[in-house]
Design a protein around this nucleic acid. Structure first.
Length: 193
DNA sequence: CGTTGGATTGGCT
DNA sequence: GCCAATCCAACGC
């Protein structure tokens, strides 16, 4: 159970497959924070927009490791974003988790987000990390293990998924590797479709 | 060793 | 809609 075999495919295949799956963090006191993934983007070593494009470096090492690990990167001097590593070991690819729909622990997430709530709680990649308390220390974490797990769910029907270009990238901007759940209020920038 | 700019957010115009 | 905030990996000299 919780077999990560579905992650062994190219990130552009795994990205829509992860929509609907659940991210769960268990806090030291046993409290659980959880959310349903509603928006993802695919990145691959063949793709100029990907951190792994220029090869394996200390920073991108995790992207080339086994599928099902968490790749966390720091950006814009203040934000963390997290990805699920995909594909075979040695291949640099991952799926960015851009937004989730909060399920459990939204009160704690609101605290982590300095009071922001509602749709502003987790509708962006850095917001998801802030709400769940994910930072550089989680880079490389195996998502099959406590205290941060990814629970794969059944794939969604294709007609519930919208595919668009990725947000905020300049290289390879035509690659339509962003996926989100249609009409979900927690999707970041839903107008761009 | 100095420079550059980014898979973002939030606050202000 | 525009832009500052603020770090650091990658790259050029």
């Amino acid at each position: 159970m919780n077999d990560f075999a579905p992650l062994l495919y190219p990130s552009a295949v795994v990205a829509p497959r992860l929509l609907g799956s659940i991210l769960i963090r268990t806090l030291p006191d046993g409290t659980e924070l959880s959310g349903r993934i509603v928006e993802t983007e695919a990145y691959d070593q063949s793709d100029a927009a990907s951190h792994s494009y220029k090869g394996r470096t200390p920073r991108t090492d995790v992207m080339f490791g086994p599928a099902g690990r968490l790749y966390v990167y720091f950006t814009y001097g203040m934000h963390y974003c997290c990805n699920v590593v995909t594909g075979p070991e040695g291949h640099g690819s991952a799926v960015l988790i851009r937004a989730v729909e909060p399920l459990e622990g939204s009160d704690i997430m609101t605290n982590n987000r300095h009071g922001r709530g509602g749709y502003e709680l987790t509708n962006g990649p850095a917001k998801v990390c802030q709400a769940f308390g994910i930072d550089r220390a989680w880079n490389g974490h195996d998502l099959r293990e406590q205290p941060l797990r990814l629970i794969l769910t059944q794939p969604l029907d294709a007609d519930r998924i919208v595919q668009t270009v990725r947000i905020g990238i300049r290289q390879a901007k035509d690659m339509p590797w962003r996926f989100f759940i249609r009409d979900n209020p927690y999707v970041s920038r839903p107008r761009i479709a």
